[in-house]
Amino acid sequence: MASSHDADTAGITRRKSLAAIAGAGALGLAGCTQSGNGGDGGDELSGPINIAGSSTVFPLMSAVMEDFAEQHPGVDPDISSTGSGGGFSNFFCTGDTDFNNASRPIQPEEETLCEENGVEYIELIAATDALTVVVNPDADWIDSLTTEELAQIWKSDPAQTWDEVRDEFPNEEIERFGAADTSGTYDYFIEAILEEEGHTSDYQATEQDNTIAQGVSGSEFAIGYFGFAYYFQNPDQLKALGIDDGDGPVKPSLETASSGEYTPLSRPLFTYPSISSLGEEHIAEFARYFVEQTTNEDLVAGDVGYVPATEETQEEQMQKLEDAIERAQG
């Protein structure tokens, strides 16, 4: 009897202690719960921002995105480097992206496509680029070219040897490295230098600045052109030519491009936000932030290698943007 009584009390104590432990555990766990609805909400900006377009604007836009993403943890931006035209026709004018970057203004057929799909947009100036013509650093026989000479090298029926371009140049074949025809750089080069003469097809075409740089540094008689950023970051690897537009040769640099001396190869870079996207608060805020940053010298010139916008341009752009945002949200 006694033993069974003992067993009973032992059982009860064990049950009690188990219950006590469970109760303590439950109390402890109660502190570790979460709501099933997720999202802490609040007035914090959140949502995706999709951007595609020019590979020239890509470094600038992704640098701005990086800072914006750091400041707004809820915003989820992504960017694709598709080339100006590829971005317009495949993604922006079909309504799949919020911004399209371009290294040249939007073209008529792209405008039509956007119109057909009901995509409205505004044009914002992002920065200024100085298209840079480079030769091999060992080529000490050449220092500058006039725009006519440049056209002779790159027109659709081009000079074959250097002495055809200028008599004192060596009698050696010209090796050309340039932008592919999907690139805004190519379009701008035609517009600024070649006009109706057309671009030669006798050259190595690529979207990668590195390939052009490799090609040009491989031969003393090679010539190439690309955006300023690559030359800015690697000034010793290649030699930039001065361009003579009638007022003597001018070398490309941040100063000559922003003062307007470096003509005709300094060009504006653009981004096109879609108006319906600006209706979303986080995208409007990003667009404002972007326009603010276009005058940030450390970022635009220092980190990326383009010419920052002037205060005046910035104000104009901001006005344009605020109007569009008001239209979209109002």
């Binding site: 995706p48 995105m65 993403a69 989820d76 992504d78 960017i79 993604f91």
Partner: peptide, 17 residues
Amino acid sequence: IGAATTVFRAPDSLFSR
């Protein structure tokens, strides 16, 4: 298929870019 070149956050669902 338009996959992004650069994203700044890890995807959090099968339908995020």
